[in-house]
Design a protein around this nucleic acid. Sequence first.
DNA 1: CACTCAAGCGCG
DNA 2: AAAGCGCGCTTGAGTG
Length: 673
Amino acid sequence: MVWNVNLPDAEWHSPRAPLALQGTPAGSSWRFDIEPLVREIADHDLIALDTETTGLNIVKDTPLYWSMSWTMNSGKERRVCMPSDTLPYFSSIFKDANKRWVLANAKYDMHILANVGILLAGECCDSQVMHALLYEEQSHKLKDMAKEVLGWKWTDFKDTFGILKDKSIQESLVWMEHNNLDKLVEYASNDAYGTLKIYHTLKKELEEAITYSAYPNEFRSMADIFFKTEMPYTKVLWKCERHGIKINADYLASISGPAQAEIEQLEREITHAAGRPLNVNSTPQLRQLFITELQLKPLTYTNGGKSGIKQPSVDADFFDHYKNEVPLAKLVLQYRELTKLKGTYIDGLSRQMDPFHRIHTRFNQDVARTGRLSSSEPNLQNIPTAENDKFKLRGAFIPCDDKHELIVIDYEALEMRLLASATVGTHGNPEGAKDMIQIFLDKKDIHMGNAALMMGKRFGVTYEEIVAAKKMDKYVKEGKEPKERLTDRMIQCLKWRAQVKNIAFGLNYGMRENKLARDLGIEKSEAAALMEAYMDMHPAVRAFFQEAVEETEKTGFSYTFIGRRRFHPEIHSKRDMERFEAQRKAVNNNIQGTAADVVRFAMLNIDAESLDYHYGCKMLLQVHDELVFECPKETVAAVKPIIRERMEHPFYTDMAVPLTVAMGTGESWLNAK
DNA sequence: CACTCAAGCGCG
DNA sequence: AAAGCGCGCTTGAGTG
């Protein structure tokens, strides 16, 4: 219930008599007139829509009531609520491709409607995504947006219907229709009405949010970013969610028992080694044992959270450090690794399968501040990679049947390529980081190339020598070669590569010598010298980082390549910590955000190819720089070059460094790499 | 019992 | 003096 705003009448339209005939109180009216409503709606192409549902599950829940809001030609605003059995009357409206639907958390309602056979042919405009582009630090939930954007004071679902604690969402809603129809209609119709009001306000604000883009004609304001990239993206992502990915349920079931047995065995060993039962999942218990009783010196301290009380960390680094002198430390590491795999992935994924053993993640467009997606319920963007997973869980992600394969495509060193491209033009230097760009043009591994450049003069090491070392390392790991063949010099080469890689990534995140020294186990001065050497090797990289900070100081924002912007109010903070943090975020947003733009454009490009229609090929997953498709075996060969082309040329023009992808196909996510 | 927070850890 | 970006899930522990 909104109580500080004048609202249009809340209308209840139903083909059947109200369940509660004890009168419809003032402010709402009950009519049997659905057909006139359909004719009225047909004339309008901007409609807000919202559903009240049986629950929050996108696979199985369905609409109970639904609401629409629009503005009549006369200027009169309408907000109507209906029971879900009116939905079929509006099928011609839903099939109208010229409509623009406005929804808060659009993909959710699109799933709920699809669960009763309704697809929205028109544009789907998510007001939460609009809000996220302008107010990335705020909540984008409908009620919170209404408060911030419109100044509405609005009782949320829980407070409106929460009087029935022991009842489900469905029971609460139906109870309300029986006992207080007016309250139901008022609440539900307002979800749509508020969404429409927010749309109009945010559209204007997006248009006024001028940005800097490499394509100023295409992207002048954040409204261009939203309507040209984010709004169509919503539908693409909805299709990925809707299709889901098949899980080999038998495989998950088959490893659950053995994993549990291993955990229990470890528990017994830990009890024996500790001399008493110990809950390894309890951080305080671990601190008590390892810090207080065994008197081990802490390596780092926790953040302390709200209270600010910093405690010794008992994380993986800590136990790794002491694993040789304290056998129990090694057991704790093994226990943590196993329980993580079992709890989060084996059991977690098993819980999330639909009846056909498919998992439908949610790709959230309004969470990551950089423009990346996030994935939840379950998160499919943090499934362990093969090297860290003895159960090989990616092998459990499979195509729908044996006539299909998975296609897995990764961008190669995407962020490094974007960084190299972005150095062109910094400080008026048209060549940019030309040595780094050359490594890419020569189709070399960037970290080996950098290592050879940096260590070459001092240690006489060549690119080819590092390649050979990496190759030998791989063979030794695969058991193809005895480990004696990996010479000390080769190990040194690998170390150099790892160091340079650490520096390169670290710089993208704003890392300082303290952290590098800790990571590499070297002196702070040595770490500082390494970072300086790296920057001296690529002066344009240093210039790029400087310019990124300067631009943010000047405008308050950082900007991706296409002009997606992020606000950094702390860039002028007097407190060093805050200011440095803003600088790190600004620098990183350029790179991570541009990478997110690349992948978003690639997915839009691929969607426009209608691969499903032409080849039966469906896009399923995005993992930041990786896409997963499910494709009939006989069309794989035709589809692959299309995907490659669309991914390697995402924008209107190419950048200084070409983008490349690595493709693989197979019977699972594991062996398609 | 339901909720929140902190710590830890999986991914890019 | 301090300083690695971006996410989501599980657990234990504390609170209402």
